[in-house]
């Protein structure tokens, strides 16, 4: 474990807590894409298949349980909570996210490190996570007003994988044979997808104005 990865995990945890805070306290999911939340639940479900077979550390297991539990409970809140679901804008959250799942699964079947069920599912989760934010970014561009918590959620979610890139650079130079092109490329693509959001997020922070994405 290095400082970049710990910072990345804490940033990821913070993004999940910000979203749970928003949904649980103000009982609203306005501006939040259910599609992205469903994709993330699938990402964690396919990435953490080894949670029962490979024990790595208490930290690793606890964090996996937190990410699994939070992503599925957020999906439940938006779909079934009698108050929260009323604030879900299903007419705006129209990204066809199965069009993201299918190419990711096909790519995972062809491009992976080992052709085993767990490895292909794990690789699928990497590809899917890289594009999982798209429905959320599309929704943000449609709903003009982005509330602070949603903006902070997206920022933290994008920043965590960016920190992981520093972690991979660090591990490359400190661990022999630490080469994982699939993970690296998926992580860089994922972070680049946030590039324009980061730009407008910093602009709004610098000029102390409300975050607005161009139409």
């Amino acid at each position: 474990m290095n400082i970049f990865r710990l910072a990345g995990d804490m940033t990821h945890l913070a993004s999940v807590l910000v979203l749970l805070l928003k949904i649980h306290t103000i009982k609203s999911c306005a501006g939040v894409s259910l599609k992205t939340q469903e994709l993330y639940a699938l990402v964690f479900a396919t990435r953490y298949l080894d949670i029962v077979t490979d024990f790595i550390s208490v930290y690793n297991t606890v964090m996996k349980l937190i990410f699994l539990g939070s992503s599925f409970s957020i999906v439940w809140y938006i779909r079934h909570h009698r108050v929260v679901r009323r604030s879900y804008d299903k007419d705006q959250d129209t990204f066809r996210h199965y069009l993201l799942m299918i190419p990711c699964m096909l790519l995972a079947l062809f491009v992976h490190e080992k052709f085993t069920f767990k490895e292909v599912m794990w690789t699928f989760s990497l590809y899917l996570e890289a594009v999982a934010i798209l429905p959320q970014l599309v929704l943000l561009q449609r709903t003009r007003n982005i509330d602070n918590l949603t903006g902070q959620y997206v920022f933290l979610l994008g920043a965590y994988r960016g920190l992981y890139i520093f972690n991979w650079i660090y591990r490359y130079f400190t661990e022999p044979h630490f080469v994982h092109w699939i993970t690296w490329i998926a992580g860089v693509v994922q972070t680049l997808l946030y590039a324009d959001f980061f730009y407008y997020y910093f602009e709004s922070w610098k000029n102390n104005v409300r975050l607005q994405l161009p139409a």
């Binding site: 490979d54 790595i56 550390s57 661990e175």
Partner: peptide
């Protein structure tokens, strides 16, 4: 997960 595996990450 062996030493330099990336599976020890989240």
């Amino acid at each position: 997960a062996d030493e330099n595996d990336v599976k020890d990450e989240l």
